[in-house]
Amino acid sequence: MTDEHGKRFDPARVFPYAFRHTYAQLRADAGVPLDILQVLMAHQDPSTTQVYYRPSHPRRVEAVRAIAAEYHDLLAPQLSGGKDSAVMMFVLMEAARAAGLADRVISYLSSLGVLE
């Protein structure tokens, strides 16, 4: 068995809980509602299931792209700056910072000429 990089996978790292955790995380990432996943996992308390609803890296990237797409039409015409442009850049950068993607957003804004 190999890992995603083609290296030999250590069988000692495989244990039943990992399969259960992966199952739950994949269902949460696919958008299964909390109450349904709680039943599927046989959790008594919703807070036990809630841990699977943390944003994964791909979901954070998707969120920042959605924000960038939403604000693109507003940012692009305002290359000269101004209060509205600054506010929109702040919102976009805060979302990116929270998602750990600030470098990508800076690159995006640079491509628009906003940061020149």
Score class of each variant (00 low, 15 high):
T2V: 15
D3K: 09
E4Y: 08
G6Y: 00
K7W: 00
R8D: 09
R8Y: 06
R8S: 11
D10C: 02
P11M: 01
P11S: 03
P11E: 02
P11Q: 00
R13M: 06
V14T: 11
F15W: 09
P16K: 11
P16D: 04
P16V: 14
P16I: 13
Y17P: 00
A18C: 04
A18R: 15
F19H: 11
F19T: 07
R20I: 09
H21L: 09
H21V: 08
H21K: 14
T22G: 01
Y23N: 03
Y23E: 07
A24L: 01
L26S: 06
L26H: 07
L26F: 03
R27C: 12
A30V: 08
A30F: 00
G31H: 02
V32T: 10
V32Y: 00
V32I: 11
P33F: 11
L34V: 04
L34I: 04
L34E: 05
I36L: 07
I36E: 03
L37N: 02
L37P: 00
Q38E: 09
V39H: 07
V39L: 10
V39P: 00
L40Q: 10
L40A: 13
L40I: 08
M41G: 07
A42H: 12
A42E: 06
H43C: 10
D45L: 12
D45A: 13
P46F: 05
P46I: 10
P46T: 11
T48C: 03
T48D: 01
T49F: 11
T49P: 08
T49E: 05
Q50K: 15
Q50C: 10
V51N: 01
V51R: 14
Y52L: 12
Y52D: 06
Y53R: 13
